[in-house]
Nucleic acid binder design. Structure first.
Lengths: 263, 263
DNA sequence: CGCCAGATTGAGGACGCTCAATTCTGGTGG
DNA sequence: CCACCAGAATTGAGCGTCCTCAATCTGGCG
């Protein structure tokens, strides 16, 4: 269990804190409460599930390195990802208030997580109402993303779903602000299919479609965005649901997100 | 704005409180904080949207009467419901921490809601950490339901989705505990399609399928469940995600939910 | 009685799945 | 340096679920 002085822990927590502060007003004292959250590091190999179905968990996971995902399974064992989490995300902060998880967590790539005991989360929340609200808000943003995924699965076709996911992961990776046109997405086509409600075979075809249209290409674990505007167009993408900006313009338009330098 | 003495308001809030207490430990004082939440009643006709897309809301809605739903729309205006709310549900409690709603609320049937100003929600949460946690937890249960819907949309076929929705709405309506075999579901086939990611035409065919198989029938606004076991079987249903019981058995089985008296 | 929203049914077509074969890639050991 | 291997990616052919378009039917209501 890491103490307040642990540098690695503070580094991992700092990334999460930055995300929290993007969306909530937090005092210096609140920040210190977050940065000094106790916990333990744990690594998991790609493809391994680290929270099993129906398990009762006693700690929340902050992703420190790699890509993790929440998923459910149907009768036939087919998986459906319900959330993907990047470094700096709290993958299951909500388990602090609902420890009986009815979904599981899996490592999409090799992953390192920082596990904070629920007790510590509650103590921090109790010590600061503003922090309690920030935790709640963080979970709410995840719910907002889930809502957008529902829209994708229910009302968008395969190519649109894939393009939409690329847009989302690009923005969440923080590339758009930096004007970049590529980001890491260490997911196999099988895993992409599980995220999009498609088969790996069809994901492959849709990747080819985007590549041959000069819109985006996935090479190895990196996605290269060749045409931001058309990617957002195909993906029917509006970044409002990600709540990445503290204040967003009143216009409800579906403008492409801060396009990077095109070609 | 209703005051603490308003009987109708207390009645509406009491139903929500019962739901909160199902999942959290709340003191007498916490209960009174909830029951005395100020607000105003408002009615909306079936088919009308009462929170529009991108609108910034200043109050949370407790459903008092009727059926309401959250939804998103794709580029073509096709709707996808992301949540359905019954009387006693807080339809957008989360808006208290994330007022910029990127989804909208619509009245599936004639609806009466009790609108509680966000300010009041925050005051109550600030006055009682246990209550703050209960609010957070309530939102988390909604997120859990959204996760299960993702699984349905991504990995279940049309008949399974419909059967699953029937199971969920039956349990949430509180019929299973009462051993009943019918419940009100005032949704058109169009609306069911929007919930399930299907067209109204195909919903119609799936309804016929369930009816002709002697599993369930929708007559007007009521659903009659003819065979609980087979409905849960077809719907691939496990009620854990609803978190309706305070403690649930450690077995992760997919047992049908307290079947009503058959035939 | 006319009107309208919702429900019902049919026929044809498209999107995504299944099954299967093959190629590519990175890692391991001889 | 190369053979070997497993996992992943790629491609083809055929098929099934669900969609589209369209017509008809039903019940409530003015």
């Amino acid at each position: 269990m890491s103490g307040p002085g642990d540098t690695d822990a503070r580094t991992a927590l700092a990334r999460w804190l930055r995300r929290l502060m993007l969306r909530s007003e937090l005092s210096e004292r609140d920040a210190e409460l977050v940065l000094s959250l106790p916990g333990t590091f744990r690594s998991t190999a790609a493809g391994r599930d680290f929270v099993r179905l129906g398990e009762r968990v006693a700690a929340s996971c902050i992703i420190s390195r790699g890509l993790a995902a929440r998923f459910g399974q149907n009768r036939d064992g087919l998986r459906q990802l319900t959330a993907v989490h990047l470094p700096g995300d709290a993958a299951d902060l909500h388990s602090a208030v609902l420890p009986e998880s009815e979904s599981a967590l899996t490592a999409l790539s090799d992953v390192t997580i920082y596990q904070v005991p629920h007790e510590a989360v509650h103590q921090a929340a109790q010590a600061s109402p503003a922090l309690a609200r920030a935790f709640w808000r963080d979970c709410t943003v995840d719910a907002s993303i889930a809502g957008e995924w529902l829209l994708s699965l229910g009302r968008r076709d395969a190519s649109s779903r894939l393009a939409h996911l690329f847009c989302e992961m690009a923005l969440r990776s923080g590339v758009a602000g930096a004007g970049q046109d590529r980001f890491e997405l260490p997911m196999t086509q099988e895993q992409l299919g599980d995220a999009l409600g498609l088969t790996a075979v069809h994901v492959n075809r849709m990747l080819r479609l985007l590549r041959e249209a000069g819109i985006a290409a996935k090479v190895g674990t990196t996605v290269e965005i060749l045409d931001w505007a058309r990617l957002a167009e195909v993906g029917d993408f509006d970044d409002a649901y990600l709540h990445l900006r503290r204040e967003r313009p009143a216009t409800g338009g579906s403008a492409p997100p801060t396009p990077g330098a095109g070609g």
